[in-house]
């Protein structure tokens, strides 16, 4: 009995991990595009203008594509200009639930929706990053972030 329970616990842990395995494309945008257009679990690091962002597609959840946008590191000039906001904004994320039904263009893929962060954030996203981007001081960073994703 004890062996069965141990094996059960280990299998449960492995199952949990395997169910949520996300293909890490690193900095390879092509790898990410190929997977993200069909909302396959994948992640991409984006370095732009000294900022480091991360996009993570977690897959289809209740007919929506779950996507996370995360700010890992922001550039030094912004940090010097806004030290307090910088402290708050790093390592924060926003999660969006994107649906192709919401688009009028039939040729659009999930990748197209993922790139339109600026349009979807108000309606389809929630997370601390969304609240931070509402602050006027973060407008410049939000612009950089949106441009980087495009």
């Amino acid at each position: 009995m004890n062996i069965k329970i141990f094996v059960g616990l280990v299998l449960l842990t492995l199952l949990t991990i395997s169910c949520t395995t996300i293909k890490d494309c690193g900095y390879d945008a092509v790898c990410f595009s190929n997977l993200a257009k069909n909302c396959k679990a994948s992640s991409l690091n984006i370095v732009d203008n000294g900022n480091l962002f991360k996009l993570t597609v977690r897959g289809i959840v209740s007919d929506n594509c779950e996507v996370s946008y995360k700010i890992i590191k922001i550039n030094n000039s912004y940090k010097n200009e806004h030290p307090e906001l910088s402290n708050v904004i790093e390592q924060k994320a926003v999660t969006c639930y994107l649906n192709l039904v919401d688009t009028t263009d039939n040729n659009q893929t999930y990748l197209d929706l993922i790139k339109k962060f600026n349009e979807s954030i108000d309606k389809h996203c929630s997370g601390p990053l969304k609240d931070i981007f509402l602050e006027p001081a973060s407008t410049e960073l939000k612009k950089q972030f949106t441009e980087s994703i495009k």
């Binding site: 996300i22 992640s43 977690r58 996370s68 995360k70 390592q91 994320a93 926003v94 999660t95 601390p128």
Partner: peptide
């Protein structure tokens, strides 16, 4: 809960 990170960040 507060940083909005995903399950993949807490393995």
């Amino acid at each position: 809960r507060l940083s909005g990170l995903g399950f993949e960040d807490v393995f």
